[in-house]
Simulated scan of single mutants.
Amino acid sequence: MKPHPTDDLVRTIAHVRDDSLAGFEDRSAARELLADVTALDVTRNKPRVRRRPVIRAAVACGVAATVAAGAIVLTRGGSGPAGPSTIQASEVAQVTSLVAAAARKQPDLHPRDDQFIHVKSVEVTVGADVFDKNGHYTHEKLPRTNRELWLSVDGHRTGLLRESPCPPGRSCDDPLRAYHQAGAPAPGSTAALRSLPTDPAELLKAIDTMDSGAPRPELRWKRIQGLIMEQYLPPKLRAAIFEVLGDLPGAAIDRTATDAVGRAGIAISVPDGIGGHHQMIFDRRTYQYLGTRSIAGPPAGGKLVSPYPGATPYRLPKVGFRPAAGTVTYAAALLSVDVADHPPAH
Protein backbone atom coordinates (compact mmCIF):
# COMPACT_ATOMS: atom_id res chain seq x y z
CA MET A 1 0.00 0.00 0.00
CA LYS A 2 1.34 3.46 -0.89
CA PRO A 3 2.43 5.38 2.25
CA HIS A 4 0.33 8.36 3.26
CA PRO A 5 1.80 11.49 4.92
CA THR A 6 -0.53 11.14 7.90
CA ASP A 7 0.12 7.43 8.56
CA ASP A 8 2.15 8.06 11.72
CA LEU A 9 -0.57 10.28 13.13
CA VAL A 10 -3.22 7.72 12.25
CA ARG A 11 -1.28 5.01 14.08
CA THR A 12 -1.04 7.23 17.15
CA ILE A 13 -4.78 7.83 17.21
CA ALA A 14 -5.53 4.16 16.62
CA HIS A 15 -3.49 3.32 19.73
CA VAL A 16 -6.17 5.17 21.70
CA ARG A 17 -3.70 7.53 23.32
CA ASP A 18 -5.25 10.65 21.79
CA ASP A 19 -9.00 11.35 21.90
CA SER A 20 -9.44 15.08 22.49
CA LEU A 21 -12.18 16.28 20.16
CA ALA A 22 -12.72 19.71 21.69
CA GLY A 23 -14.08 22.11 19.12
CA PHE A 24 -15.15 19.38 16.68
CA GLU A 25 -18.20 18.02 18.55
CA ASP A 26 -20.53 19.05 15.73
CA ARG A 27 -18.72 17.02 13.07
CA SER A 28 -20.06 13.57 12.34
CA ALA A 29 -16.60 12.07 11.79
CA ALA A 30 -15.48 13.33 15.20
CA ARG A 31 -18.50 11.78 16.90
CA GLU A 32 -17.94 8.48 15.11
CA LEU A 33 -14.27 8.50 16.10
CA LEU A 34 -15.04 9.03 19.78
CA ALA A 35 -17.76 6.36 19.72
CA ASP A 36 -15.27 3.97 18.14
CA VAL A 37 -12.59 4.81 20.69
CA THR A 38 -14.86 4.52 23.75
CA ALA A 39 -16.09 1.14 22.56
CA LEU A 40 -12.55 -0.31 22.63
CA ASP A 41 -11.44 -2.46 25.55
CA VAL A 42 -7.89 -1.20 25.97
CA THR A 43 -5.23 -0.54 28.61
CA ARG A 44 -1.61 0.45 28.50
CA ASN A 45 -0.54 -3.19 28.47
CA LYS A 46 -2.87 -4.47 25.77
CA PRO A 47 -1.95 -4.80 22.10
CA ARG A 48 -2.43 -1.67 20.08
CA VAL A 49 -5.59 -1.61 18.01
CA ARG A 50 -5.91 -0.09 14.56
CA ARG A 51 -9.25 0.87 13.04
CA ARG A 52 -7.99 2.54 9.94
CA PRO A 53 -11.21 3.17 7.95
CA VAL A 54 -12.80 5.30 10.69
CA ILE A 55 -9.55 7.05 11.58
CA ARG A 56 -8.82 7.85 7.92
CA ALA A 57 -12.26 9.46 7.67
CA ALA A 58 -11.47 11.61 10.68
CA VAL A 59 -8.19 12.76 9.11
CA ALA A 60 -10.00 13.59 5.87
CA CYS A 61 -12.35 15.87 7.80
CA GLY A 62 -9.50 17.75 9.45
CA VAL A 63 -10.10 16.30 12.92
CA ALA A 64 -6.77 14.54 13.37
CA ALA A 65 -4.75 17.64 14.24
CA THR A 66 -7.01 18.39 17.19
CA VAL A 67 -7.21 14.74 18.24
CA ALA A 68 -3.43 14.55 18.36
CA ALA A 69 -3.35 17.32 20.93
CA GLY A 70 -4.70 15.04 23.68
CA ALA A 71 -2.83 12.46 25.72
CA ILE A 72 -5.39 10.18 27.36
CA VAL A 73 -5.21 6.46 27.99
CA LEU A 74 -8.55 4.83 28.74
CA THR A 75 -8.95 1.99 31.22
CA ARG A 76 -12.03 -0.14 31.25
CA GLY A 77 -13.35 -2.05 34.24
CA GLY A 78 -16.22 -4.48 34.69
CA SER A 79 -19.84 -3.52 34.11
CA GLY A 80 -21.68 -5.87 36.42
CA PRO A 81 -23.33 -5.65 39.84
CA ALA A 82 -20.58 -3.42 41.22
CA GLY A 83 -21.51 -0.60 38.84
CA PRO A 84 -20.61 0.94 35.50
CA SER A 85 -17.30 0.62 33.73
CA THR A 86 -14.59 2.45 35.65
CA ILE A 87 -13.17 5.16 33.50
CA GLN A 88 -10.94 8.19 33.83
CA ALA A 89 -12.73 11.48 34.41
CA SER A 90 -11.39 12.73 31.08
CA GLU A 91 -13.75 10.43 29.16
CA VAL A 92 -16.72 11.63 31.19
CA ALA A 93 -15.83 15.15 30.05
CA GLN A 94 -15.49 14.01 26.43
CA VAL A 95 -18.85 12.23 26.36
CA THR A 96 -20.54 15.11 28.19
CA SER A 97 -19.14 17.55 25.63
CA LEU A 98 -20.48 15.52 22.71
CA VAL A 99 -23.87 15.00 24.35
CA ALA A 100 -24.20 18.75 25.03
CA ALA A 101 -23.12 19.59 21.46
CA ALA A 102 -25.75 17.21 20.05
CA ALA A 103 -28.43 18.83 22.24
CA ARG A 104 -27.51 22.33 21.06
CA LYS A 105 -27.91 21.28 17.42
CA GLN A 106 -31.53 20.22 17.86
CA PRO A 107 -34.11 22.61 16.40
CA ASP A 108 -36.06 24.68 18.91
CA LEU A 109 -39.79 23.84 18.87
CA HIS A 110 -40.69 27.40 19.97
CA PRO A 111 -43.94 26.36 21.71
CA ARG A 112 -46.47 29.12 22.34
CA ASP A 113 -47.78 29.65 25.85
CA ASP A 114 -51.28 28.56 24.75
CA GLN A 115 -50.02 25.22 23.38
CA PHE A 116 -49.12 21.86 24.93
CA ILE A 117 -45.91 19.84 25.09
CA HIS A 118 -46.72 16.31 23.87
CA VAL A 119 -44.39 13.64 25.23
CA LYS A 120 -44.43 9.88 24.51
CA SER A 121 -42.38 7.55 26.68
CA VAL A 122 -42.15 4.02 28.06
CA GLU A 123 -41.56 3.21 31.72
CA VAL A 124 -40.55 -0.07 33.37
CA THR A 125 -40.29 -0.54 37.14
CA VAL A 126 -39.08 -3.78 38.70
CA GLY A 127 -41.72 -3.55 41.41
CA ALA A 128 -43.11 -1.67 44.38
CA ASP A 129 -43.39 -2.24 48.13
CA VAL A 130 -47.08 -2.53 48.98
CA PHE A 131 -48.77 -2.65 52.41
CA ASP A 132 -52.43 -3.68 52.61
CA LYS A 133 -54.97 -2.24 55.07
CA ASN A 134 -53.84 -4.74 57.73
CA GLY A 135 -50.22 -3.68 57.39
CA HIS A 136 -49.10 -6.87 55.60
CA TYR A 137 -46.20 -6.38 53.20
CA THR A 138 -46.05 -7.70 49.65
CA HIS A 139 -43.86 -6.89 46.67
CA GLU A 140 -45.90 -6.09 43.59
CA LYS A 141 -44.42 -6.52 40.13
CA LEU A 142 -45.31 -3.71 37.79
CA PRO A 143 -45.84 -4.04 34.01
CA ARG A 144 -44.26 -1.98 31.26
CA THR A 145 -46.24 1.25 30.96
CA ASN A 146 -46.74 3.39 27.88
CA ARG A 147 -47.06 7.05 28.87
CA GLU A 148 -48.38 9.98 26.87
CA LEU A 149 -48.38 13.51 28.29
CA TRP A 150 -49.94 16.78 27.21
CA LEU A 151 -48.40 19.54 29.36
CA SER A 152 -49.75 23.08 29.19
CA VAL A 153 -46.82 25.30 28.17
CA ASP A 154 -47.72 28.07 30.64
CA GLY A 155 -49.53 25.76 33.05
CA HIS A 156 -52.80 27.70 32.83
CA ARG A 157 -54.66 25.01 30.86
CA THR A 158 -55.73 21.52 31.90
CA GLY A 159 -53.34 18.88 30.60
CA LEU A 160 -53.57 15.11 30.39
CA LEU A 161 -51.60 12.00 31.31
CA ARG A 162 -52.62 8.82 29.47
CA GLU A 163 -51.17 5.43 30.44
CA SER A 164 -51.59 1.96 28.95
CA PRO A 165 -52.24 -0.90 29.34
CA CYS A 166 -55.12 0.12 31.54
CA PRO A 167 -56.26 -2.23 34.36
CA PRO A 168 -59.93 -3.34 34.15
CA GLY A 169 -62.39 -1.01 35.78
CA ARG A 170 -60.01 1.93 35.91
CA SER A 171 -59.53 5.03 33.80
CA CYS A 172 -56.03 5.62 32.50
CA ASP A 173 -56.67 9.24 31.52
CA ASP A 174 -55.63 11.53 34.38
CA PRO A 175 -56.30 15.26 33.96
CA LEU A 176 -53.40 17.53 34.93
CA ARG A 177 -54.84 20.46 36.84
CA ALA A 178 -54.41 23.97 35.51
CA TYR A 179 -52.69 26.71 37.48
CA HIS A 180 -55.28 29.40 38.09
CA GLN A 181 -53.21 32.23 39.53
CA ALA A 182 -53.25 35.01 36.97
CA GLY A 183 -50.11 36.52 35.51
CA ALA A 184 -46.86 34.57 35.60
CA PRO A 185 -46.55 31.03 34.20
CA ALA A 186 -47.15 28.15 36.59
CA PRO A 187 -44.06 27.08 38.59
CA GLY A 188 -42.33 24.20 36.80
CA SER A 189 -44.12 24.83 33.50
CA THR A 190 -42.29 24.97 30.19
CA ALA A 191 -42.72 28.74 30.07
CA ALA A 192 -41.32 29.19 33.59
CA LEU A 193 -38.34 26.93 32.91
CA ARG A 194 -37.19 29.16 30.04
CA SER A 195 -35.75 31.54 32.63
CA LEU A 196 -33.31 28.96 34.02
CA PRO A 197 -29.65 29.96 33.50
CA THR A 198 -27.58 28.18 30.85
CA ASP A 199 -24.31 28.55 32.79
CA PRO A 200 -23.82 25.06 34.34
CA ALA A 201 -22.71 26.36 37.76
CA GLU A 202 -25.67 28.73 38.05
CA LEU A 203 -28.02 26.09 36.67
CA LEU A 204 -26.95 23.59 39.35
CA LYS A 205 -27.75 26.17 42.04
CA ALA A 206 -31.18 26.67 40.50
CA ILE A 207 -31.81 22.90 40.37
CA ASP A 208 -30.78 22.49 44.01
CA THR A 209 -33.32 25.10 45.15
CA MET A 210 -36.10 24.22 42.70
CA ASP A 211 -39.56 23.88 44.33
CA SER A 212 -38.15 24.40 47.82
CA GLY A 213 -36.14 27.62 48.02
CA ALA A 214 -33.62 25.93 50.31
CA PRO A 215 -30.78 23.86 48.78
CA ARG A 216 -31.78 20.19 48.39
CA PRO A 217 -28.82 18.54 46.59
CA GLU A 218 -30.15 15.08 47.45
CA LEU A 219 -32.95 15.75 44.95
CA ARG A 220 -30.65 16.65 42.04
CA TRP A 221 -31.12 13.44 40.11
CA LYS A 222 -34.91 13.40 40.50
CA ARG A 223 -35.16 16.98 39.31
CA ILE A 224 -32.77 16.56 36.40
CA GLN A 225 -34.57 13.40 35.29
CA GLY A 226 -37.91 15.21 35.41
CA LEU A 227 -36.60 18.08 33.30
CA ILE A 228 -35.17 15.78 30.63
CA MET A 229 -37.70 12.92 30.48
CA GLU A 230 -41.12 14.59 30.54
CA GLN A 231 -40.64 18.27 29.87
CA TYR A 232 -39.39 20.51 27.09
CA LEU A 233 -36.33 22.74 27.39
CA PRO A 234 -34.81 24.93 24.65
CA PRO A 235 -31.69 23.36 23.11
CA LYS A 236 -29.12 25.55 24.94
CA LEU A 237 -30.75 24.88 28.29
CA ARG A 238 -31.02 21.15 27.61
CA ALA A 239 -27.30 21.10 26.74
CA ALA A 240 -26.50 22.87 30.01
CA ILE A 241 -28.45 20.22 31.95
CA PHE A 242 -26.24 17.51 30.43
CA GLU A 243 -23.13 19.50 31.34
CA VAL A 244 -24.36 19.66 34.94
CA LEU A 245 -24.93 15.91 34.88
CA GLY A 246 -21.37 15.19 33.73
CA ASP A 247 -19.97 17.40 36.50
CA LEU A 248 -21.82 15.68 39.37
CA PRO A 249 -19.59 13.96 41.96
CA GLY A 250 -18.80 10.37 41.05
CA ALA A 251 -19.94 10.65 37.43
CA ALA A 252 -18.71 7.71 35.31
CA ILE A 253 -19.36 6.10 31.93
CA ASP A 254 -21.20 2.85 31.20
CA ARG A 255 -20.81 1.64 27.60
CA THR A 256 -23.29 -1.23 27.98
CA ALA A 257 -26.46 0.66 28.96
CA THR A 258 -29.88 -0.18 27.47
CA ASP A 259 -33.08 1.84 27.75
CA ALA A 260 -36.61 0.61 28.47
CA VAL A 261 -37.27 -0.39 24.84
CA GLY A 262 -33.95 -2.17 24.32
CA ARG A 263 -31.98 0.57 22.57
CA ALA A 264 -28.29 0.22 23.38
CA GLY A 265 -26.28 3.30 24.23
CA ILE A 266 -23.56 4.93 26.27
CA ALA A 267 -24.57 6.29 29.69
CA ILE A 268 -23.42 8.96 32.10
CA SER A 269 -23.80 7.32 35.50
CA VAL A 270 -23.94 8.96 38.95
CA PRO A 271 -24.08 7.32 42.41
CA ASP A 272 -27.50 7.09 44.05
CA GLY A 273 -26.13 7.39 47.60
CA ILE A 274 -27.01 3.83 48.69
CA GLY A 275 -24.55 1.80 46.65
CA GLY A 276 -26.34 1.84 43.29
CA HIS A 277 -26.39 4.38 40.52
CA HIS A 278 -28.61 6.35 38.15
CA GLN A 279 -27.91 6.66 34.45
CA MET A 280 -28.84 8.81 31.48
CA ILE A 281 -28.43 6.93 28.21
CA PHE A 282 -27.42 8.38 24.85
CA ASP A 283 -27.14 7.02 21.32
CA ARG A 284 -23.58 5.85 20.66
CA ARG A 285 -23.35 7.58 17.29
CA THR A 286 -25.59 10.66 17.45
CA TYR A 287 -25.34 11.27 21.23
CA GLN A 288 -29.06 12.02 21.32
CA TYR A 289 -30.82 11.29 24.62
CA LEU A 290 -32.55 7.89 24.71
CA GLY A 291 -33.70 7.38 28.28
CA THR A 292 -32.78 6.76 31.88
CA ARG A 293 -32.45 3.88 34.30
CA SER A 294 -31.58 3.12 37.94
CA ILE A 295 -29.47 0.14 39.03
CA ALA A 296 -29.42 -1.39 42.52
CA GLY A 297 -26.23 -1.68 44.50
CA PRO A 298 -25.31 -4.24 47.18
CA PRO A 299 -27.87 -4.62 50.02
CA ALA A 300 -27.54 -1.56 52.24
CA GLY A 301 -30.16 -2.23 54.92
CA GLY A 302 -28.85 -1.13 58.30
CA LYS A 303 -25.79 0.58 56.83
CA LEU A 304 -24.81 4.23 57.09
CA VAL A 305 -25.27 5.87 53.71
CA SER A 306 -25.15 9.39 52.26
CA PRO A 307 -27.73 10.61 49.71
CA TYR A 308 -24.97 12.54 47.92
CA PRO A 309 -21.23 13.14 48.46
CA GLY A 310 -20.60 15.31 51.51
CA ALA A 311 -24.06 14.86 53.03
CA THR A 312 -24.68 13.80 56.61
CA PRO A 313 -24.87 9.98 56.68
CA TYR A 314 -28.02 8.24 57.87
CA ARG A 315 -28.83 4.61 58.58
CA LEU A 316 -30.93 2.83 55.95
CA PRO A 317 -33.78 0.80 57.49
CA LYS A 318 -33.95 -2.96 56.98
CA VAL A 319 -37.45 -3.07 55.51
CA GLY A 320 -39.10 -3.97 52.24
CA PHE A 321 -37.91 -5.73 49.15
CA ARG A 322 -34.27 -5.24 48.16
CA PRO A 323 -33.41 -6.34 44.60
CA ALA A 324 -30.08 -8.04 43.93
CA ALA A 325 -27.10 -5.84 43.15
CA GLY A 326 -26.96 -5.01 39.45
CA THR A 327 -30.75 -5.22 39.01
CA VAL A 328 -32.27 -2.50 36.85
CA THR A 329 -34.96 -1.24 39.22
CA TYR A 330 -36.31 1.44 36.89
CA ALA A 331 -35.94 2.22 33.19
CA ALA A 332 -37.55 4.73 30.88
CA ALA A 333 -37.28 5.51 27.19
CA LEU A 334 -38.16 8.82 25.58
CA LEU A 335 -39.88 8.17 22.25
CA SER A 336 -40.89 11.63 21.02
CA VAL A 337 -41.48 15.25 22.01
CA ASP A 338 -43.55 17.65 19.95
CA VAL A 339 -46.09 20.45 20.27
CA ALA A 340 -49.90 20.14 20.19
CA ASP A 341 -52.64 22.75 20.18
CA HIS A 342 -54.73 20.82 22.72
CA PRO A 343 -54.94 17.40 24.40
CA PRO A 344 -57.40 14.79 23.13
CA ALA A 345 -60.88 14.53 24.56
CA HIS A 346 -61.13 12.02 27.40
Rank of each mutant, 00 (worst) to 15 (best):
P3W: 03
H4D: 09
D8L: 12
D8H: 02
L9C: 02
A14K: 07
R17K: 14
D18M: 13
L21Q: 03
F24G: 00
L34H: 05
D36M: 04
L40I: 01
T43A: 13
R44P: 00
R51W: 01
R56K: 11
A65H: 14
T66I: 10
T66R: 14
R76Q: 07
A82C: 08
A82F: 09
I87F: 12
E91Q: 11
V92D: 03
T96R: 14
S97P: 07
A102Y: 03
K105H: 10
V122P: 01
V124E: 04
T125E: 03
V126E: 10
E140L: 00
K141D: 10
R144F: 11
N146E: 06
E148V: 09
E148Q: 15
V153Y: 11
T158W: 08
C172I: 05
Q181E: 11
A184W: 04
G188F: 11
P197T: 07
T198S: 12
E202T: 00
K205F: 06
E218W: 03
R223Y: 01
Q225T: 05
Q225H: 07
G226D: 14
L227F: 01
E230N: 12
Q231Y: 04
Q231D: 06
Y232W: 12
K236S: 06
A240H: 06
I241E: 08
F242H: 05
F242T: 10
G246R: 05
L248P: 04
R255W: 07
A257Y: 02
V261R: 13
I274V: 11
Q279P: 02
I281G: 02
D283G: 14
Y287N: 06
Q288A: 02
Q288W: 01
Y289T: 00
Y289H: 13
T292P: 03
R293K: 09
I295W: 02
I295H: 07
G297T: 00
P298L: 01
G302S: 13
P307L: 05
A311S: 14
T312D: 10
K318D: 11
A325Y: 03
T327F: 09
T329C: 09
A332N: 13
A332E: 10
A333S: 12
D341S: 15
H342V: 13
P343H: 15
H346Q: 14
